[in-house]
Design a protein around this nucleic acid. Sequence first.
DNA 1: GCAATAGTGTCTCTCAGACACTATGGT
DNA 2: ACCATAGTGTCTGAGAGACACTATTGC
Lengths: 221, 221
Amino acid sequence: MQPVICTVDVVLLTLQDDALRVALLKRDREPFKGVLALPGGFIHPDDDAQTQDAALRVLRNKTGIEPPYLEQLATFSGPARDPRGWSVSVVYYALVPHDVIERAGHQEVRLASVDKPLNLPFDHRTIVDTAVARLRSKSQYSSLPCYLAGEAFTLPQLQRTYEALMGEPLNKVSFRRKITEMDMLEPIQGAFTAGSAHRPAQLYRLKPELRDQLTLIERGI
Amino acid sequence: MQPVICTVDVVLLTLQDDALRVALLKRDREPFKGVLALPGGFIHPDDDAQTQDAALRVLRNKTGIEPPYLEQLATFSGPARDPRGWSVSVVYYALVPHDVIERAGHQEVRLASVDKPLNLPFDHRTIVDTAVARLRSKSQYSSLPCYLAGEAFTLPQLQRTYEALMGEPLNKVSFRRKITEMDMLEPIQGAFTAGSAHRPAQLYRLKPELRDQLTLIERGI
DNA sequence: GCAATAGTGTCTCTCAGACACTATGGT
DNA sequence: ACCATAGTGTCTGAGAGACACTATTGC
């Protein structure tokens, strides 16, 4: 009986210019050597305590990034998705603020808009679409977008982040009511935006105790 | 390098006496031979077009059941969950009306309440808990519970199904408003419950075109 | 008629969105 | 002073829950 090829892939997503982008790397080996694809690799049973650790290892080794948010997306499988044979890929998606990618610069990471046509090897296009759908869906009723907004952000910035993900403008009063009621942010004392020709905005951060935990709301943003 | 063991497991859920129950089978081989566990088995790359087909095959062969709803839950992995070695299990959860299990009777299927303490081998307890959490969460804003209610059901029966899953009583008027607005059911012409000492209730079924597709609602039931 | 459950009409209270206002920086 | 954006107070309309009512069966 033919063996099953076991891999992990990571959909690393970020926001740049209010557009959702996915991180792609040139493959360093066959198949599809030199082609842009999702970061991925084999599971190493001797190194990885579970598939999530394999995903973190792949991301660290190939991009130098430690993502603030990483969640299992789904597992993709079949005889044809990888030319090497019947394969299983456990896929994770990660969210990082854009500046983290810029600062990492470990290898050449390309950012491609997820809304434009995109030719990817394997079934990576399907995987990206699944990840984007999951992110957009969860953004409606959770604190997920905060992980794209960075360490510190203003409420108007966070609102633009939510709007970019949900694809529609939000009511300012309602948005702030929701964020307040979620009780997940704390103002950074004395920290305001500056340098612009208008009133400065208060900077906020995720409450430390909620840093690794999604906050959910009943009725959506 | 040690190989990765690739399996699928299925969490088959049903409602009996307003309690959510999971189907367990006595294992027919080592490890844990004779112990009650989730139906599962190895992926057969030569037979299965993808892991979902492996899950369907396992379910068909071991229980004789073709579930009306089957969805990927998550993938569980690690060196210790299976005594045979580093393993990956792609887990699916299935929903079936209770009478389908009774009619199948292919092998001895035990139904255990998911809310009572339950000793299971491998990490099956964690898997069951994850499946139940997913089902209860999705029930709040989708037509998922319909798959537990059977082919035909009355609105009061469907409401009791939702209540059993959500663990709280629902307002009858609001519930019916929501179901109407979801526009997923059609009355079975001339079909009513009978034999009880009160007004008969109209029987409904899922609209055929929505049979294999979840209906979602914005603001929850 | 009576008990029991199915099914509906309507009122009220809550909450989300709209609007308008104030606040505070730069120029 | 004026512009631009941050941040807040308040009104209104839509929708969810509560209640009460009618409908239809068996006994």
